[in-house]
Amino acid sequence: MPPVRQAAARHAVGRTGPPRDLAEETAVALSFDGTTQAVMMATPADLEDFARGFALTEGIAAPGEIDSIAVVEAGPGLDVQVWLRPGAAARLSARRRVMAGPVGCGLCGLDSVAEALRPPPPLPPGGLRLAAADVRAAIAALPGHQPLHDATRAVHAAGFWRPGHGMVAVREDVGRHNALDKLAGALAAAGVPGGAGAVVMTSRLSIDLVQKCARIGAPVLIAASAPTAHAVRLAEGAGLTLCALARAEGFELFTHPGRILTEGIPDVA
């Protein structure tokens, strides 16, 4: 059984009201075949999903190439030990990370600028189409699946919206990229294809999120905040639709607007 770590802790110093819940962040080592690939500051929950999704979005291993995952205590932190099936281990060195990643960094530690800024795999044209109402409904639904954020006001969320199904999975973490990796792992474990829906996030859209979303195979990425200029360029080249600054009342389209039936809302290229 994996060790039990609380995702939130109570804190009352200097408060006259009830103790406040604070989000936990823990040093989480992601080890593959006995070698540590990354040490990330992450919320100590859904760690098997985290490892499975990290392997997928970093191009280390497909879900079917993972033999086993175990979570063990490692001093003050946790070690998520992943064992791969033959053939996947050769990809480890290309994405080797050589330093701990702070909670806000999805690319920290990569020892090659080219690797950090690599273009994501192109998404196939066509496929998923969403109505503008789907985009608005997806961003409106996400807060209802964020219990840790409700308790702490300190974490991000990544969800997966499927037309006709609604929000089928959500994961939370102190790091936006960690939340997306956890979501990717949850989708892979459930056998949900990335192309069947849209990723929905609470955060700004940076290049690492575009890279990861493309590897998941999700053709639409919806976010409450804005994208960076580099993220827009990367998404344009990957064929990924970016819907940002999304609210229940509207959103802006930055790339590949053809996947969204905008019902008279002007496309934003």
Rank of each mutant, 00 (worst) to 15 (best):
V71K: 00
L183S: 02
V192Y: 09
A235L: 13
G175W: 08
Q146V: 09
A141P: 09
V4D: 03
R91W: 14
M201K: 09
A38N: 11
V80H: 01
R85Y: 05
L22R: 15
D111L: 08
G239K: 12
A27S: 13
C243G: 02
E115P: 06
A45G: 05
P147T: 10
D49G: 00
G101H: 00
A8G: 02
T255C: 02
A61E: 13
G258P: 01
P63R: 06
Q81Y: 00
A140D: 10
P3E: 03
P2F: 02
I265M: 14
Q211I: 05
L56V: 11
C243R: 00
H156S: 05
V200Y: 11
S31Y: 11
G239A: 08
A186E: 10
A23Q: 10
A224G: 11
I139P: 10
L30R: 00
P120F: 12
A198D: 08
A229N: 08
S225R: 15
A133M: 04
A169L: 15
K182Y: 07
G185T: 03
I222L: 09
F251C: 01
K212Q: 12
L84I: 04
T36S: 07
R91E: 03
E58V: 00
W161T: 02
P63M: 07
Q6H: 10
A7N: 01
T241E: 06
G14L: 12
F251V: 04
V13M: 06
A169Y: 06
A229Y: 15
E252S: 05
D67N: 13
R171T: 10
P102A: 03
R215Y: 04
T262R: 14
A51I: 00
G185S: 05
D21Y: 14
Q211E: 03
G101V: 03
N178S: 11
Q81F: 00
A38V: 14
A223L: 09
L78W: 14
S112T: 12
